[in-house]
Write a protein that binds this DNA or RNA. Structure first.
Length: 258
DNA sequence: ATGACGCACTTGGTGCGA
């Protein structure tokens, strides 16, 4: 089974790009972030025509997450880890694989704005709530392997940053964010891509501005955390990021045993 | 320090992203 996470930066604006990627790669599971639309505006039909089941959790203009899968999924949960905050950033479901189930948690972590902003304070609060929520969710689904994936808006280490000196102490790279990332790992998860590519400096996000992609100036902030199963392979698809009218994030895929 | 690029939206400048 393969599971892709992709911040698409508006599903309506990106629909053609996403569909051509689906037709080429035929993913089993697609976890999307930054839908930037309400549930009724998500273009479900082209995915259903291709044999996919779609569960969305959207809101107007901002945020929004979805699970799209050709393996059936059940037991969908939305609105976590801070219920009622009006920000659609979390959706989870159980994938019914060929020989086993997998619980998938799809996240769009708070960006955080500037260091001295309310947004950054909320990001840390949100991450604290996430650690507690994942711990409880893992206990509640203890019989099933779990993947927590999405746009974490955290570069876990300097190896995930094109210019660590420039980014030192900046939002996405602060010690406080990285400590919360570590607390997630300490719940019993491994960073799939890093486990398979121990010393590789490769990025999943490249700024639209300043020709970031062409300069290979980016960050690795889109991740799959695995518990109870091993990653067989992990791929960051830079070809998708290189396309005209692409998202600023590349799709990231992890392969696990069916 | 600023802007650069792209997106949504009470569509024209503003907020937001990372």
């Amino acid at each position: 089974m393969n599971i892709t996470t992709w911040n698409v930066n508006s599903i309506r604006r990106r629909l053609e790009r996403v569909l051509e990627w689906v037709d080429t790669h035929e993913p089993d599971v697609l976890c999307l972030q930054e839908l930037k639309c309400q549930d009724g505006e998500f273009p479900i039909e082209p995915f259903v025509e291709r044999g996919y089941q779609v569960s969305t959790y959207g809101q107007k203009a901002y945020n929004g997450v979805a699970i799209v899968s050709r393996v059936p999924h059940i037991d969908v949960v939305r609105d976590f880890p801070i219920p009622g905050d009006g920000q659609a950033r979390g959706i989870a479901a159980t994938l019914l694989g060929r020989t086993r189930k997998v619980r998938v948690v799809n996240l769009y972590v708070v960006n955080g704005g500037e260091l001295d902003s309310d947004k950054y304070a909320y990001k840390l609060q949100w991450l604290d709530a996430l650690v507690d929520w994942v711990a409880a969710h893992k206990s509640a689904h203890a019989d099933v392997p779990m993947v927590v994936c999405g746009d974490f808006n955290i570069a876990p280490a300097d190896l995930d940053v094109y210019d660590p000196k420039r980014w030192a102490g900046q939002v996405l790279c602060t010690d406080a964010e990285r400590a919360r990332w570590q607390r997630l790992l300490d719940l019993g998860f491994v960073d799939s891509w890093r486990q398979l590519h121990a010393n590789e400096r490769t990025f999943s996000w490249f700024d639209y501005r300043g020709g970031g992609f062409d300069r290979n100036e980016g960050l690795r902030i889109d991740h799959h955390l695995l518990s109870g199963m091993q990653p067989l392979e992990a791929v960051i698809d830079h070809d998708a990021r290189a396309r005209a009218e692409s998202s600023d994030h590349a799709p990231v895929t992890v392969f696990v045993a069916d």
